[in-house]
């Protein structure tokens, strides 16, 4: 297990991108081009994000069910940045699965693997390697012990740790009507 991936918390789900295509009868919308989804303190960034809605409801669209992200996927919270090739975010279960060349950065600590499964509600995250024909890749982690501090002192966040660079222009705010 690795450090907890934070829950996004409540608040609206704002998504910005270059383009958006709506497939009304499939209850599916597809964002493409530097896509950023923001909810509370969490951000999901990818080249392409598909949002699936539950069918039903007066307007044919129920609640948001899940989001599938592909292409340079980043899940960013206040304290962690996880990078992968693909991601699946199940909204109702508050669970996110990141797959392919996963790199999880928490401050100066870095872990790599092939599959990161995080329960955003409980904070439990599991990073796994890969086994199969393509060979076996193991989970690898580098931890930097914090410098000596007194008991109970606030953890010192080191400033000199390299932060992964997230491509694109970042999220664009939604201006209400």
């Amino acid at each position: 297990q690795v450090g907890a991936l934070g829950s996004p918390g409540d608040g609206p789900l704002d998504i910005s991108a270059n383009d958006l295509e709506v497939f009304d009868q499939e209850n599916r919308v597809v964002y493409s081009g530097d896509v950023n989804a923001i909810r509370g303190t969490a951000r999901l960034r990818a080249d392409r994000i598909e949002v699936f809605f539950e069918p039903g409801g007066g307007t044919g669209f129920g609640a948001v069910q899940r989001m599938r992200a592909t292409g340079d996927v980043f899940y960013v919270t206040a304290t962690e940045i996880a990078r992968a090739d693909e991601g699946l975010y199940e909204i109702a279960d508050e669970r996110i699965v990141l797959i392919g060349d996963v790199v999880l950065t928490q401050g100066c600590n870095v872990s790599t693997g092939q599959r990161l499964t995080a329960n955003l509600a409980t904070g439990v995250s599991e990073l796994a390697g890969a086994t199969g024909e393509a060979g076996e890749t193991r989970v690898r982690s580098v931890f930097f012990p914090d410098s000596e501090e007194e008991e109970g002192a606030e953890p010192v966040v080191r400033e000199d740790c390299p932060v992964p660079e997230i491509p694109g222009d970042g999220p664009q705010p939604f201006e209400e009507g």
């Binding site: 609206p12 789900l13 704002d14 998504i15 910005s16 991108a17 270059n18 383009d19 958006l20 295509e21 709506v22 497939f23 009304d24 964002y31 949002v51 948001v64 664009q172 705010p173 939604f174 201006e175 209400e176």
Partner: peptide, 12 residues
């Protein structure tokens, strides 16, 4: 089928 282009921001 609806397409939005040239910079999209949405609130779901």
């Amino acid at each position: 089928r609806v397409i939005f282009t040239d910079g999209v921001t949405t609130r779901l």
